[in-house]
Amino acid sequence: MIDPLMLLGAIVALVGGIGAVGARQLMRAVAFLTLLFIGLAGLFGALGAPYLAAAQLFLFVGGVVTLLALAFGSAATPVARGTAIVTAAVTLLGALVGAAVLPSIPDAGTTVAIADLARALFVLYGPALEVVLLIILSAVIGVGYILADDQREGHR
């Protein structure tokens, strides 16, 4: 028996993925990407990982898609910039509402306890987590360097 939430999530994710790659306009591609991430969140919920689904919505729909829309808006024409800001605001709102609603879906039963996940993340993969945190720190410094260097080039 196929779980209807899983089937719906798979269809939404596939439509979103194909749309993101096939869309001619970049802004539409970002909107389809939002659909992909919402579908993936539904799939994670159906697979018994509601916290991963909520994290998917917060991180990717609320963070990455908003960042992509704003980055595209900063590089586009003033008309497209307005569309980008509206898309970013709607996406952020959708992410917050989705993340609030998803864990309360009755069928999304948890197969992994949060305590087991915390033990795996901080004990079993503790050294890997520290390496990842170092990578994030170096990336933050690198992004600051790229943008500061770009601004210096612009002033010359």
Partner: peptide, 22 residues
């Protein structure tokens, strides 16, 4: 083992988001 797999997903997401920021 399932919790370990979910922890790996979280670590992969951290790297992915860093890559997207760059």
């Amino acid at each position: 083992l399932a919790a370990g797999a979910h922890a790996i997903v979280l670590l992969a997401w951290a790297i992915e988001v860093t890559e997207i920021a760059i």
